[in-house]
Design a protein around this nucleic acid. Structure first.
Length: 739
DNA sequence: CCGTGCTAAGTTTTT
DNA sequence: CTTAGCACGG
């Protein structure tokens, strides 16, 4: 291959050191905006051009499809090889590929399906019923997350040690569930990693083959790897392989998904002789933004410690505004977005970030009223909509008739008169014969089981329909196949007949899905139905961001990781919202919230606008909150508290469907000026002492008040406090760890 | 067996 | 305030 020199002049000394490091284990501690992707792509290019490594000997692993795509494009361009030669993929994608090839060793057929959380719950519910457990959704979900965390730790069904009732049941369920998954020829997200680990551990031939194949392994976002991912890497990167990991301990935000920040903190112990390179020179943000982010993250104890700086200017201060309601806050964010875009910033360079998906609502409403185009990422994934899931279930069943989950999803969609009773009888028949529900349906139509005549006929017709499709599934275009099945099954006809607006939306979504399939096939003509189904299972909304175009973006802080914007609006800066109320009792959880705050701030290149609402609706009930403690951690000289500046009321829009009569100028309260005394003051009572009526309670938003009543206990305890000027308010109590 | 209407419960964060 | 699950009548 050509050994064209790589131009390293664009790299700073630390970046160059990382890109051109030798084969010893390498940890690149890359702060936000310090050119992490640049380093990893230059390293790939350098390995090929200067160190004589063949492209197919390099494996690069990322967390998101978007990151993989970007890395592939940039590394391909730098090296002059083009994108296709490189082995770059997500953890799940890479493991999926290995399983398609070697999964037969574990009893998996290469057309296995990928189950998501809903599929898992659906299958687990039936397992619970068979085990005589409670099959209520909430309970099943709890067991599911227990099993999920075992998987994340790399523990198989036989390796768990239950310590209480729930865990004991979860362990029983785990065993049966895994058995059923295998029978259905399906894996869930956790299995993709865990099965891969099993493969590498138990099958020496596979391990040897793969170690021979990849001499250099690079991992992006290493701080978010969990135990299984770590173990998989250890298996792939033996003593002979060169391992490079890139990450930022301050951006580890997936603890709840099993991510172990210890992996990055321990790297030098785990891999003796490791070289560590720190990247602290930031190319993205202004000094004010960096100083704010540095100040916030400095409150965390579990970190390696680094301080971002820039050679650029200080920039503007961060703004902070407090509003009476979430509606006013949304209105102000929309107004701020409008002004930003009017000032010449491209809409795609503006984002509104929030902690939870539910918070997008008031912002969306306000943007709609102002006719500002926006795109919401996350929330309900496109592929999670009912009609999309139904459509995919048809395709999945055609691809793999053993999948009971998919059978149950579509056997009565559209209504075929197959109800609960028939399905129970069918399940009994399937259990008796030891076959999948689909096979049982065939048997039933031939007379087996105790299923009524009408139902028997319908089941036969359904089985026939799927079988017919299967015949030409192998060579058919997945899009045409789906169109055919949606027509033949009457699924579309049923929606058309409904004639409601909602049904029309669903039909439109189906058209969009067909279009997405066409696009996919156009890009990858040789791809099979199995390939497309895998793509659909692993796709996320953020992956599709490329076509944001003229829209501003709305997303959670989690989704924003790895992205950058000229202007960032960070809404909902309130205790209980951010940090989330479920994270304030535990130090490790709180530190993760703080990292999330750090991630949010460092997304911005030039401007950050922080906001909070006094009153917010949760479960249809008004709750009042204090300002987020993170605001108190930002040095006040970096904050502009808005000396009298307030957003204009919204001009009345032309009357149309978007017009909400309840909304008028009077409903809009301008942002008040904040004084120093309005910043959060943390004088909460400790849980040990408890609250007593009559006690004086201090609340930054309202001042001093008298406690009238206490409702409930623990972190969700509600306090009813009377404030002299504001009247009676309910506050959700928070208990803070002593420092 | 299907649709309607009621009640209860629920919200972190997502590959 | 929404959605999912369930009880009831047709």
């Amino acid at each position: 291959m050509s050994r064209g020199a790589i131009d390293l002049s664009r790299l700073n000394p630390a970046q160059r050191e990382a890109a051109c490091a030798g084969d010893a284990p390498l940890l690149v501690l890359a702060g936000a905006g310090t050119g992490k992707t640049t380093v990893i792509t230059y390293r790939i290019a350098w390995l090929m051009a200067e160190a004589g490594v063949r492209p197919d000997q390099i494996l690069a692993v990322t967390f998101t499809n978007k990151a993989a795509k970007e890395m592939r494009a940039r590394a391909g361009e730098l090296s002059g090889l083009g994108p296709s030669a490189l082995d770059i993929g997500t953890f799940h994608g890479t493991c999926g590929r290995l399983l398609r090839r070697h999964g037969h060793l574990l009893g998996l057929d290469r057309h296995f399906l990928i189950y998501d959380a809903d599929d898992q719950v659906s299958l687990m519910r039936r397992c619970c019923a068979d085990l005589g457990f409670d099959a209520q959704t909430a309970f099943v979900r709890r067991l599911r997350s227990k099993i999920e965390s075992w998987k994340n730790q790399g523990l198989g069904p036989g390796e768990v040690t239950p310590f209480d009732d729930d865990a004991f049941r979860a362990a029983k369920l785990y065993g049966l569930y895994e058995k059923r998954c295998l029978e259905a020829n399906a894996v869930d997200f956790g299995d993709m990693l865990l099965h891969t680990l099993t493969l590498l551990r138990r099958h020496d031939a596979v391990r040897h083959e793969l170690r021979g194949r990849w001499s250099h392994i690079l991992v992006d976002e290493y701080q978010d790897t969990n135990r299984v991912q770590y173990e998989v890497l250890r298996q792939l990167a033996g003593p002979e392989q060169s391992l490079t990991v890139v990450g930022d301990d301050d951006q580890s935000i997936y603890r709840w998904r099993g991510a172990d920040i210890g992996n990055i903190l321990r790297f030098e112990n785990d891999f003796p002789g490791a070289v560590v390179v720190r990247l602290e020179l930031n190319y993205r943000s202004t000094q004010n933004i960096l100083s704010a982010a540095n100040a916030v993250i400095a409150h965390n104890a579990a970190r390696k410690g680094k301080t971002l700086y820039t050679e650029g200017d200080a920039g503007e201060p961060l703004t902070l505004r407090l509003y009476d309601s979430e509606r006013d806050e949304g209105e102000a964010v929309a107004y701020g977005i409008e002004e930003t875009v009017a000032g010449g910033v491209a809409p795609s360079e503006v984002v509104a970030l929030y902690r939870t998906n539910a918070q997008s609502r008031p912002i969306e409403d306000a943007l709609r009223r102002r006719r500002i185009a926006y795109a919401v990422y996350g929330g309900i994934r496109f592929y999670d909509r009912r009609e999309i899931r139904d459509s995919l279930a048809y395709l999945r069943l055609i691809n793999n008739p053993r999948s009971d989950v998919d059978f149950l999803r579509v056997v009565n969609a559209p209504a075929r008169g197959i109800g609960k009773t028939s399905l129970e009888r069918l399940a009994a028949l399937a259990g008796e014969r030891g076959v999948a529900l689909f096979d049982a349906a065939r048997l039933a139509s031939a007379g087996a089981g105790k299923i009524g005549g009408r139902q028997r006929k319908q089941l036969g017709a359904f089985a026939q329909l799927i079988d017919d499709m299967r015949e030409h599934a192998a060579d058919a275009h997945p899009g045409r196949l789906l169109e055919e099945i949606l027509e033949t099954s009457g699924y579309r006809a049923a929606l058309r007949q409904e004639g409601t607006e909602e049904a029309q939306d669903r039909l439109d979504n189906i058209d969009e899905l067909l279009q997405a399939i066409d696009e996919y096939v156009a890009l990858a003509p040789e791809a099979s139905l199995t390939d497309f189904l895998e793509e659909a299972a692993l796709a996320t909304d953020v992956d599709q961001m490329a076509d944001a175009g003229e829209s501003v973006s709305l997303m959670t802080l989690h989704s924003a990781k790895g992205l950058e914007f000229h202007t960032v609006f960070l809404a909902g800066m309130e205790e209980g919202v951010f940090p989330h109320r479920r994270s304030v009792d535990e130090r490790a959880a709180l530190e993760e919230e703080r990292r999330l705050c750090y991630v949010g701030l460092t997304r911005a290149k030039r401007r950050v606008h922080l906001s909070a609402a006094r009153r917010r609706f949760t479960f249809g009930e008004a709750t009042y909150s204090n300002l987020s403690r993170f605001l108190a951690e930002i040095p006040s000289e970096l904050l502009d508290l808005g000396a009298g500046a307030s957003p204009r009321p919204t001009p009345a829009p032309a009357r149309d469907a978007d017009w909400d009569p309840a909304f008028d100028d009077a409903a809009f309260t301008p942002a008040p000026t904040l004084g120093a005394g309005d910043l959060p003051v943390h004088r909460e009572e400790r849980s040990g002492g408890g609250f007593q009526p009559g006690m004086t309670v201090f609340h930054a938003t309202f001042g001093e008040g008298t406690l009238i009543a206490v409702d409930g206990s623990g972190p969700r305890q509600k306090l009813v406090v009377e404030f002299p000027e504001e009247g009676r308010k309910t506050i959700v109590a928070r208990f803070v760890e002593p420092r």
